[in-house]
């Protein structure tokens, strides 16, 4: 593989053995690792989702699927916004980039607000972190995902701000691409969580 890079190129810091960017390689490595983070959380949920600690009324029956479907849809569409933003900045279309990156950040924020609202409703119905293994694993899993979304939104807003002050141009599209990878990953984790937690007819398989 190293043969593709020339000897003189290796003198430059950015030329690499694989011909790939360090940052992007690191991002994919991190995402490989993140699979194990979320895998552990989802596994704990799958092990405990029928375990109600003697309070069967606090169960997945509380989930408001229409509501969550809407916020899931918003998060899914934010991924579309992200690719459109990337494609805009790669074309050098700064205005398009700003529109789409801001839209993505807003959609992410809508999802987060939905999650906070959902948590509030649940807590009011008596579903607390310490109610049962089911609730513990639900909150810790979705909360951990929520933290990831928050970090993503912060990065997106930063990108938008940098672009507004003219400090982010098509030269830096690789930064946008890497943050985009992170954003899409957070989205695919939710695709899995949405099915595993909300959609699977637990009352049929739960027995």
């Amino acid at each position: 593989m190293a043969e593709v890079t020339t000897a003189e190129a290796s003198e430059e810091a950015h030329a690499t053995s694989l011909g790939l960017s360090n940052e992007k390689l690191a991002m994919w490595t991190l995402l490989g690792s993140e699979c194990l983070f979320f895998g552990a959380l989802i596994s704990a949920y799958l092990i405990y989702y029928t375990n109600y600690n003697g309070q069967p009324e606090i169960s997945p029956a509380l989930f408001d699927i229409p509501f969550t479907s809407v916020s899931t849809f918003v998060l899914l569409m934010s991924s579309l916004g992200m690719v459109l933003a990337l494609s805009a900045i790669q074309r050098g279309d700064d205005r398009g980039f700003r529109i789409w990156i801001l839209a993505t950040a807003i959609m992410g924020s809508v999802f987060l607000s939905g999650q906070i609202y959902e948590f509030t409703v649940f807590v009011n119905e008596g579903m607390r972190l310490d109610t049962s293994p089911f609730t513990s694993s639900f909150y810790v899993m979705t909360g951990f995902h929520g933290i990831h979304v928050t970090v993503g939104v912060l990065m997106l807003i930063t990108l938008w701000a940098r672009s507004m002050t003219g400090k982010l141009t098509s030269e830096h599209s690789d930064v946008v691409e890497n943050i985009g990878l992170y954003w899409h990953f957070v989205d695919i984790v939710w695709i899995v969580i949405f099915t595993a937690v909300y959609l699977v007819p637990y009352e049929q398989v739960g027995a």
Partner: peptide
Amino acid sequence: PVIGIALWQLMFDVRFGANFFNPAAGGD
């Protein structure tokens, strides 16, 4: 990541009363 999540769950059990590993409340 595996131990990271286990420690994260342990922290919630110890500090915030979660039930991942508490047999009295159904954890294993």
